[in-house]
Design a protein around this nucleic acid. Sequence first.
DNA 1: ACAGAATTGTAGCCACAGCTACAATCTACA
DNA 2: TGTAGATTGTAGCTGTGGCTACAATTCTGT
Lengths: 141, 141
Amino acid sequence: MSDHAKQSLPHLRTRNDHSTELAEDYVEAIAEIAASHGSCRVVDLAKHFGVSHVTVNRTVGRLQNEGLVKTEPYKPVGLTAKGARLAVRCRERHEIVYQFLLAIGVDPQTAAIDAEGIEHHVSPATLRCFVNWSKTNASIS
Amino acid sequence: MSDHAKQSLPHLRTRNDHSTELAEDYVEAIAEIAASHGSCRVVDLAKHFGVSHVTVNRTVGRLQNEGLVKTEPYKPVGLTAKGARLAVRCRERHEIVYQFLLAIGVDPQTAAIDAEGIEHHVSPATLRCFVNWSKTNASIS
DNA sequence: ACAGAATTGTAGCCACAGCTACAATCTACA
DNA sequence: TGTAGATTGTAGCTGTGGCTACAATTCTGT
């Protein structure tokens, strides 16, 4: 085994992240839309992500197979208990990342964009550091 | 147009990032391997990323079409001037992200893993904040 | 020089995420 | 009530990134 082999581990992690990013984005969006609209429909998700309703439909089907969402034909999309838990975790993590970026001086618009991309790649350990730093910074200022 | 429409912009940005992530990882890896081995071959990249040589081959072909790498059949893979410039930028950005994570208290192993995922999603504005914070922190300690 | 090993290329498969076009279903209003 | 518009579902295409299996080429050691 060459010394390159161990370097592949972070990349494997990156690819695994990719396969769950969409799931995380979807449960987060479904929770948000359901909270603000009363219900979440395919068309809402399509607008939210800027994709066609067909793509949403297929993805929702996949998430249903994974036990994250629950829906019936021509009915709104809802979260399972598992999906709801994931949504809460994602929302908390997203908020921590966003607030951390603001705290280190990133402008709100950029922070919103970057948080979307960054949040899926922040491990629990790093997240704790974000929280700790935010606390420390708050007590200083 | 609903008020959800504007929310699709960060997600579009996220997807654009995805399409260039592999390109960035590849040029960075090619530069690293060429520097340490003298030349970079398909087999080296396959080991580095933990994928089959077939996947590497196809991706290298795409990057060649994009003008980032230069190769010939059964020959090593090299970077074009454009690819070399991109590699330098990626390496600098990667190092800034990694050092920043270390500076806020993330352990080295986790920092290495998270930096791999995060680096592609850090905008220039956020990167400047990382650098500024690192400087400030260095002068304090 | 040549046989075997290593490397690279090709054929063809899968899954996923995007799309258009069209069909089916629901909803709402005249 | 019944039709028009909104919504959802289905068929089928593309591009990308993963793979195995096999063919071709290059490298290496005897």
